[in-house]
Design a protein around this nucleic acid. Structure first.
Lengths: 344, 344
DNA sequence: CTCCGTTGTTAAATCGGATTAGCAAGTTGC
DNA sequence: GCAACTTGCTAATCCGATTTAACAACGGAG
């Protein structure tokens, strides 16, 4: 079993000084005068004994636990969301902080209870995260606390938000198609909003579509149609099949997520159409599957890692937090699913 | 900004009793006699003031922080591993515990440093987790501590392990094929070990293959061949293409992971072979993709959620931990990729 | 009417650090 | 030579709980 932990009192005793002196020597503060000799004795003793400060005890006095709470709806469940946590964790670690990770599963009571559990442990700050970019109302326990909203927006709640720049991503999708020469026969699959839409409304779809339409229009191209459907593979398959069955002959598909793209690939394959020879596909998210599909999918990456990182960096920055929306770029992953428009 | 937290002293004052009385009344201990009247006064005051104990302060005295550390190599990165964390989190939450989640990225120094950071915060126990089932040597800082090994084994390290029952999963794969009538033309894709193999060796492949071969043999069937390759989609695609190109005509493929299965699907599709009409496929892992492929993939699910749950349940169980290996069943997800063997 | 055991309560110590206030000894200024 | 500063250190408190030791008040036994 673990031997008793070395305390600062042990270090002081070994160094032959008072605990006070040891404390000042170890914290390296200059406003209290410690002779070089004493300082060396203390540091030496600490090294010999393998002393490590008890963060819990320290925090009782200093009010800082070097600990951040992370509350999300279901973020750990989604395949890419691990990246958010990893980014947050890395940034926290670089500044000697640790993360309490929790997930409320969308349940308001569970959420409150988790926030309490976090506050009971004196976390310095809380990251309130959502799996989809959307509007949220954080639990009242978080009002007046140091909070950063991750992948969500809460108008009226005084905290910064960190979200992907979906609008610019929509524009970039359009630019990628325009650059390949596409001007007509362009269809969007997935539409303005994930279905089923949550009461709060989902932002990604609207912004992606807005950016897309704006740049297509400016580039002299047009969207032949928008198919509203669930953002998943079966719906992608079904809707694209239906589109083809109805006699449409798209030259390019803008799929609102990679899952939709997979369904589109399946439908196109069944119809004997090749990507990108017959139909170009541009997508959003950059899930694992995107790089593995044949042909590999050109897609706009959700910057989950940077999202997590930035949230922690903001929260650990000194000074008060400003209620600003930080938009993180969604980089274009150019792969093999966009080609020149098919003839005819 | 947050108003000062209500302390036990506040409650005692409001109730008109000493802090000692308040403490005993709130903790509900019976070994110290508190009159019913006082107890009620204290509970009432606590309710009125919305008192919540400061877990950090309490732990200074009691040595228990109701906090568990979770250290993994890269677990948050893998698509399914979020489930491990979710399972662990749920179980922790049910017992009023919280989890510090950390990831060392396979770096020994980072690992030690993280364990220190956890111990500095007085975690009650540590879960040491791996992304793949494998042999590990936990950092020396964990020796003598309360530890559960998650998805890994460490002979000589005195701690329980929680791992998927890969051997039985291999047997179940064989049983599924036998039940559909398969006796010959069975090939394993992926082989005994993931490539590149780590120095520690990876267990899953060996056990899956052992269970598979054992039951096939007992069932009067045989394995026509084993293709050793990387457990990913490009390798699955390449190896199955090569197999067909070499003139082999498999009736059933046992793919060692779902990623390999996806590659196999692609290769079979390109060769004009249908699943399961021409070739049955049985797989392992049950990643998201398994249910979404066409036809949906029959696969043995890695029980990540239960793995995480069990690890926490063990660690929070009273009494000393026994160095036992707990094997968690891998349930068969029967979908549409197994059929009767093709004629001819 | 003591002595003793209950019962209910509280003062004080403790946990491991950080911080404030204060105390000796040595320096400087005039 | 004495006040005023500086320097270097330590005693004492504090943070918010738990826990030990002790102390009144009361009732029953002898």
């Amino acid at each position: 079993m673990p031997e008793r932990r070395v305390t600062m009192a042990d270090v002081a005793r070994q160094a032959g000084v008072s605990p006070t002196t040891a404390s000042f020597a170890l914290s390296g503060r200059t406003d209290m005068r410690i002779s070089d000799a004493s300082r060396q004795k203390v540091l030496q003793a600490a090294r010999e004994l393998g002393y490590r400060p008890n963060v819990t005890a320290r925090s009782l006095r200093t009010k800082s636990t070097q600990t951040i709470g992370f509350v999300s709806d279901r973020i750990t469940t989604t395949p890419f969301a691990g990246e958010v946590i990893r980014g947050a964790m890395e940034a926290a670690r670089e500044r000697d902080n640790l993360l309490f990770i929790t997930e409320a599963g969308g349940d308001r009571d569970a959420e409150s209870s988790l926030v309490h559990a976090l506050l009971d442990r004196q976390v310095d700050a809380v990251i309130y995260a959502s799996m989809f970019t959307r509007y949220v109302t954080p639990p009242k326990e978080l009002f007046g606390r140091r909070v950063v909203l991750l992948n969500c927006l809460a108008p009226g709640f005084d905290a910064p938000s960190v979200v992907p720049d979906e609008l610019e991503a929509g524009r970039d999708a359009a630019r990628a198609l325009l650059a390949a020469g596409h001007r007509e026969g362009i269809w969007a699959i997935g539409g303005h909003q994930a279905v089923p839409a949550t009461p709060e409304g989902i932002i990604a779809g609207n912004e992606r579509m807005r950016g897309l339409e704006e740049v297509l229009r400016e580039g002299g191209a047009r969207l032949d149609g928008v198919v509203e459907c669930d953002w998943n593979t079966p719906d992608g398959h079904r809707e694209v099949s239906a589109l083809l069955a109805a006699g449409h002959r798209p030259r390019a598909l803008v799929c609102l997520t990679d899952r939709v793209s997979l369904g589109a690939y399946q439908a196109l394959g069944e119809a004997g159409l090749s990507v990108p020879g017959d139909v170009s596909v541009v997508s959003f998210d950059d899930q694992d599957i995107a790089s593995v599909l044949r042909p590999a999918l050109t897609t706009l990456k959700l910057p989950h890692h940077r999202l997590g990182r930035l949230a922690v960096e903001l929260i650990l920055r000194k000074g008060p937090l400003e209620a600003v929306v930080h938009r993180v770029p969604m980089p274009l992953r150019e792969r093999a699913s966009i080609g020149a428009p098919a003839e005819g």
